[in-house]
Simulated scan of single mutants.
Amino acid sequence: MTAACTGETAPELLGTLAADHATGALSTESGIFYLSAGHVVHVESAYSPDLGDLLTRSGAVAPAGWWDAVERAGARHRVGRQLVDSGRLTTGALELCHLGALFDAAYFALAHDCAPLRFRPGAAHWLGAVRPVPVAAVLGESRRRRDLLHRIWPDPAVDTAPLTRVPGTGPAGLPPRRARTLTQVDGARTAAQIAAALAHRTFHTLVELRRLAAGGLVTPAPPPPATPVHAVPDADGAAWDEPDTALLRRLLDALEAL
C-alpha cells in the first residue's frame, strides 16, 4: 500500500490506518511509524536518538544489559518486556523513556508531509509494544512541538543541519542547560548527535538550540566544498567520471485516563 504526495499526507494516512485498526509500519521520508491495532507503538527516525541510546547513555541501563535483552527477545518482539522482566528497568521508567523517544522521533517523521509514503501490513518492531499511543495524541503533540519551536526561532534547518557557533560567542552567562548544549556545537554535529552526546531527549535539545539560534549564537554550518570530479581514462584512453520529564508524566497520565 503506497500513498504519494498527490494523495494522502502522513497525518491523513495515519488517521486512516487508525480508523482501520491497522497493524504494520508506515515509512515516511524521515522516519517509520509502527502501529498495532491502529495505535502507534513505536517510531524511529535517523534525526533522533533511539531508545537504546537514551537508556544506555543516561546510565539507566548498562550497554551490555541492553544488548543482552535485544539478543534474547528481539526475534520475539519483546525487548521492552525483557528489560522489565530481567529487573534492569521498572515498567514506569521504560514507559516514560519510551514515550519521550516516540514523540521525539514522530516530530521528525512528520516533518515532510509531501513525500512518498509506504505502508507494510503486519510489520512489527523488535522492541515490542510498551504503551500504545492513539494516533490523535501523536499528531497533536507533534503539532504542539512544531508550533512551539517556530515561536522560538522559525528556521527548521536548525533541527537537522550540522550546527556551528557564531564567532566570538561562548557559554558565559547562559542558563546551565543552554550552556552545556552550546559546548557541544562544533560545526559537524546535528541536533540529534548533540542530544545523544548529552543523553538528553531530542526535543529538549531542539528547544535550547533554537533559543541559541534566536540569540545569534549558533547557525547552520555552511556546506563543505564540493569534491571535484576528475576524468579518469579507461584502458582504451576514453575518459569517464568517478562517481521535558514533567510533560511526559502528564502525557502518560492522560493516556492512562483514555
Score class of each variant (00 low, 15 high):
24 G>H: 09
227 T>P: 04
186 D>P: 09
51 L>I: 08
152 I>Q: 01
93 A>T: 12
237 G>W: 05
248 L>C: 06
212 L>N: 03
97 C>A: 15
35 L>T: 01
162 P>M: 04
154 P>N: 08
21 H>A: 10
31 G>S: 08
23 T>C: 02
227 T>D: 10
217 L>K: 15
251 L>Q: 15
211 R>N: 14
30 S>A: 11
231 A>F: 04
21 H>L: 06
185 V>L: 05
100 G>Y: 01
74 G>Y: 09
57 R>I: 01
238 A>K: 11
107 Y>H: 12
63 P>Y: 08
184 Q>Y: 15
217 L>S: 09
69 A>F: 05
114 C>W: 09
54 L>I: 13
195 A>Q: 05
18 A>D: 07
168 G>N: 05
241 D>L: 13
12 E>I: 07
212 L>Q: 11
207 V>G: 00
218 V>L: 06
91 T>Q: 13
181 T>I: 13
253 D>G: 04
173 G>L: 07
11 P>H: 04
20 D>L: 08
190 T>I: 06
136 A>N: 03
11 P>Q: 04
70 V>G: 06
114 C>K: 09
157 A>K: 14
168 G>C: 02
228 P>V: 09
197 A>H: 09
74 G>S: 12
126 W>G: 00
206 L>Q: 08
3 A>G: 05
216 G>N: 08
46 A>M: 02
253 D>S: 14
51 L>C: 01
73 A>W: 02
215 G>N: 03
149 L>E: 03
189 R>V: 01
5 C>V: 14
207 V>A: 00
240 W>Y: 15
201 R>K: 02
243 P>W: 10
245 T>C: 05
180 R>H: 15
86 S>F: 00
116 P>C: 03
32 I>V: 11
95 E>M: 13
103 F>C: 06
240 W>P: 01
203 F>P: 00
244 D>Q: 15
257 A>H: 12
142 S>H: 06
99 L>E: 03
3 A>W: 04
35 L>Q: 01
38 G>C: 01
196 A>M: 03
135 V>T: 10
138 V>T: 01
83 L>I: 08
26 L>P: 04
224 P>N: 02
9 T>K: 11
107 Y>M: 04
70 V>T: 08
200 H>R: 12
86 S>M: 03
87 G>D: 06
236 D>H: 10
154 P>L: 00
139 L>T: 05
254 A>H: 14
166 V>S: 02
109 A>E: 05
141 E>H: 08
131 R>G: 02
22 A>E: 07
149 L>Q: 00
93 A>R: 13
191 A>R: 06
218 V>G: 00
89 L>D: 03
253 D>L: 13
37 A>F: 06
